[in-house]
Write a protein that binds this DNA or RNA. Structure first.
Length: 424
RNA sequence: GGAGAGGUGGCGGAGUGGUCGAACGCGUCGGUCUCGAAAACCGAAGUACCCGCAAGGGUACCGUGGGUUCGAAUCCCACCCUCUCCGCCA
């Protein structure tokens, strides 16, 4: 959600920001509505002030036994005019809110301008893709092992569901455990076990609603299945005023994520790249405004550390203005090397949302000794997607015989297992 | 699911329909006192929005939304949530 005052002060800056997203200017429409809304509010409040004053007089007159009829009449006529003004104020306010709620965050100044993913800027590349003769894709490997079963997923639930069995199921758990341990022990994140079903307010707070309802699953009684733990973790601080000393607040959770994948029909249909349900370890930081830039780098480093430790080659890119998500001011995507696809694929996305989400969910903080409150900054990042990480391990650690070596850091989590083979 | 109780400021807890943004206590902050601290005493202190260069003024908020009234924390209606007991259940 945007700060109307900031738009008022610098409408051009706002419109330029929207333009970077490929959107038409809106400041003129917003400011016109804003002006009319405030005028209505002022008129409404002045009438109420007069009404309150008169009502006090009436009470006084009655106590003193005086005749209050004249004031009573005045209030009566006032009351006829109040509802229309109030109505006007509400209507304009709702209209303004609806417009505002559907506008994405403005890109940070150092975000590269661009249209789509082709304009993203690679900022580093870590690790060397392994040399593999005729590399297989993850689903070929998994199916050959008999431990990755698209057929069973389809039987139970349809397309975009997969059943993992045996050591692959174990590997998935091990990967998530390893990530959580690393983030909690080394990066100071607090582990959280949040609800996976949330109500409208929470989905609005992180801006899945109102614009992206079609990307979510909803229960028959109105709950939304979380598409990422960003939703419950960030909304933990909704409607609150934190002490500055508590910040930054760092939270992590491994949760299933549910996504309808509306609009991605036909894309990544084979294998586990794009599923309706997958596990992800999420990182969320709540910071003061002056902490968020450094925190963004720190968070990205935490996510990268996972891939480094797993020995997975990756590259990090800064998303261009046109490719960023709705809430983000700036986003780093981490893309892991997939030998089977002979390309880098997104495995993490770390975003600084500034105060955009905080405004929506009214998450504020107060500096020590300070009288006024400020909105916090919120950041979120995958640390990292467990399902895609499993894929990356399979493809990067595949052997000529179709077996999979276990990365060293995961062995303790696999009871010392060295490799996953067809009948091991 | 059945029965009951309740939702007031950071917390606890008052509040005859009018002077209540809200007593009182605790906690918090500033000050006095002290070598320092404690105690004591004095004082400050909700959130958001609107008008205003400012000083300052105004409006709203006592779970949420409606209603009654000149006037609602107080009355009425609906909903939400919490707690207790019973039943059922992972």
């Amino acid at each position: 959600m945007h700060d109307l005052r900031a738009i008022r002060e610098n409408p051009d800056l706002f419109d330029r920001g929207l333009a970077l997203r490929g959107l038409d200017p809106r400041s003129a429409v917003l400011l016109d509505l804003d002006l009319r809304r405030r005028a209505a509010q002022t008129a409404f409040q002045e009438m109420q002030a007069r009404r309150n004053e008169a009502s006090k007089l009436i009470g006084q007159y009655k106590r003193e036994g005086k005749d209050a009829q004249a004031i009573l009449d005045e209030v009566a006529s006032l009351k006829e005019r109040i509802p229309a003004t109030e109505e006007e104020e509400k209507r304009l306010g709702a209209e303004l809110d609806a417009l505002l709620a559907a506008l994405p965050n403005i890109p940070a100044a150092d975000v590269p301008a661009g249209k789509d993913e082709r304009d993203n800027v690679e900022i580093r590349r870590v690790g060397t893709p392994p040399v593999i003769a005729a590399p297989k894709q993850h689903f070929e490997l998994g199916e050959a092992l008999g431990l990755m079963r698209a057929d069973l997923g389809a039987k139970l639930s349809g397309a975009r569901f997969t059943v993992l069995r045996g050591q692959l199921a174990r590997l998935e758990r091990a990967i998530g455990d390893f990530m959580l341990d690393t983030h909690t022990r080394e990066f100071g994140y607090e582990e959280v076990s949040p609800p996976l079903l949330v109500k409208d307010e929470a989905a609005f707070g992180t801006a899945q609603l109102p614009k992206f309802a079609e990307d979510l699953f909803q229960t028959t009684n109105g709950y939304w299945l979380i598409p990422t733990a960003e939703v419950p973790l960030t909304n933990l601080v909704a409607d609150s005023i934190l002490d500055a000393e508590e910040l930054p607040l760092r939270l992590t959770a491994r949760t299933p994520c549910f996504r309808s994948e509306a609009g991605s029909a036909g894309r990544d249909t084979r294998g586990m790249i794009r599923q309706h349900q997958f596990y992800k370890v999420e990182l969320v930081s709540i910071t003061t405004p002056d902490q968020s830039l450094a925190e963004h780098e720190r968070m990205t480093e935490a996510a990268e550390t996972i891939l480094k430790r797993l020995g997975l080659p990756f590259r990090t890119v800064t998303l261009c203005s046109g490719d960023m998500g709705f809430s983000a001011r700036k986003t780093y995507d981490i893309e892991v090397w997939l030998p089977g696809q002979d390309t880098y694929r997104e495995i993490s996305s770390c975003s600084n949302c500034g105060d955009f989400q905080a405004r929506r969910m009214k998450a504020r903080f107060r500096a020590k000794g300070d009288k006024t409150t400020q909105f916090v900054h919120t950041l979120n990042g995958s640390g990292v997607a467990v399902g895609r990480c499993l894929i990356a391990v399979l493809e990067n650690y595949q052997q000529a015989d179709g077996s999979i070596l276990i990365p060293d850091v995961l062995k303790p989590y696999m009871n010392g297992l060295e490799r996953i083979a067809a009948h091991g």
